[in-house]
């Protein structure tokens, strides 16, 4: 009892001193609470479906940010990893009757392998050339899908996959928790030593090489990590939709990911996640005006990019918080002095 009280006190202290001091942290905490508490407020299957699919795409968008936002390896064919994860999970589930807890990780492993296969030839390429080359890979895979209809189901895809859970709420919590955990892991990776090297490669690869760091290895690692997370989202998607089809490899899927990441703010992880949670439900919300759905979506994206070129979330964050010029710690925008080093903030 006493131990529990101590833990509670410690938890309260952490919340008060680490979370409540910054608006962005409060927003993230609220995001976690709202998502985890949603079924207590509403069990509407449509709402739950939208949130589950949003979560799957949030993992995908964050995985793109890990590779292209942080490492600067501009990937315009991210649907490749998603599709490989989806198809591998589907094949394993349908033909080997592997349950989702086995097929999804193996699908992700296949996507890692794909990351290696794609990463190696792409290492010598940069900028536009890299973007165009990566764009070609899902198109090649789609060609293979259509060429081997007996294996891949061709145009129809592989359908009849097992659900992860047959319970609506069970499904919801599985997807939401996986999304929260994976996105937190990705965020922690970018905050780690490896993440700093990723960031440095994007800023100045030559300087990183000159520091004795094997950038080739790190770029390949970025491809594999990104492939892993995108592969998981592909597998989850296939099991949720109960089908893995050619649409998972479409160019529009790759571009959607880029739009989400750029809209939310690249090289942040939380930016693309937030963007998916804004844009995907927005598309659903404007169903009442079907003729103009896509146009409304495009206008919102354009306006944000026009007035917030760094992305929505960094813009919002800069409005509500400011960095200390001396210790770089972030403070709420209303403060006059830094909460750590007490340096003046204006």
């Amino acid at each position: 009892m006493v131990a529990a009280g101590l833990y509670l006190k410690r938890f309260y202290t952490v919340v008060r001193k680490e979370v409540l001091v910054l608006p962005s942290r409060i927003i993230v905490a609220l995001f976690f609470i709202v998502l985890l508490g949603m079924p207590l407020i509403s069990r509407n299957p449509y709402l739950i479906r939208v949130i589950v699919l949003t979560s799957i795409f949030a993992i995908l968008a964050a995985s793109w940010d890990l590779l292209s936002g942080f490492t600067g390896q501009m990937n315009f064919g991210h649907a490749l990893f998603f599709g490989v994860g989806a198809y591998t999970s589907a094949l394993l589930n349908i033909h080997l009757h592997l349950p989702p807890w086995g097929s999804v990780p193996l699908g992700a492993a296949a996507a890692v392998l794909t990351g290696l296969i794609v990463g190696i030839p792409c290492l010598r390429l940069k900028h536009t050339y890299l973007a165009l080359t990566t764009m070609a890979f899902p198109i090649i895979l789609m060609g293979i899908v259509f060429a081997l209809p007996d294996v891949t189901g061709g145009e129809l895809g592989i359908s009849g996959l097992q659900r992860i859970s047959n319970s609506l709420i069970g499904n919801y919590y599985i997807y939401i928790v996986i999304m929260l955990v994976l996105c937190t892991i990705m965020w922690k990776i970018t905050d780690s030593h490896t993440g700093i090297i990723f960031h440095a490669i994007r800023e100045d690869e030559l300087a990183v090489k000159a520091s004795g760091i094997n950038t080739t290895r790190y770029k390949l690692l970025a491809f594999c990590l990104s492939g892993f997370f995108a592969g998981i989202s592909g597998g989850l998607y296939a099991h949720y939709m109960r089908i893995a089809g050619p649409s998972t490899l479409e160019v529009s899927m790759s571009f959607s990911v880029v739009i989400w990441a750029v809209f939310g703010g690249m090289a942040t992880i939380y930016g693309p996640v937030a963007a998916v949670f804004i844009l995907f439900p927005l598309l659903e919300f404007v169903r009442f005006w079907p003729e103009y759905r896509t146009m409304i979506f495009a206008v919102v994206v354009l306006l944000i990019l026009l007035y917030m070129p760094e992305g929505l979330i960094p813009w919002v964050r800069d409005k509500i918080e400011k960095g200390c010029p001396r210790c770089k710690i972030r403070n709420v925008a209303t403060r006059k002095t830094c909460r750590v080093c007490t340096a003046g903030l204006d």
């Binding site: 145009e155 129809l156 895809g157 359908s159 939709m241 109960r242 089908i243 089809g245 050619p246 649409s247």
Partner: peptide, 9 residues
Amino acid sequence: TEAVLPMQD
């Protein structure tokens, strides 16, 4: 078809 299959489900 790729859409009708999950819609059917």
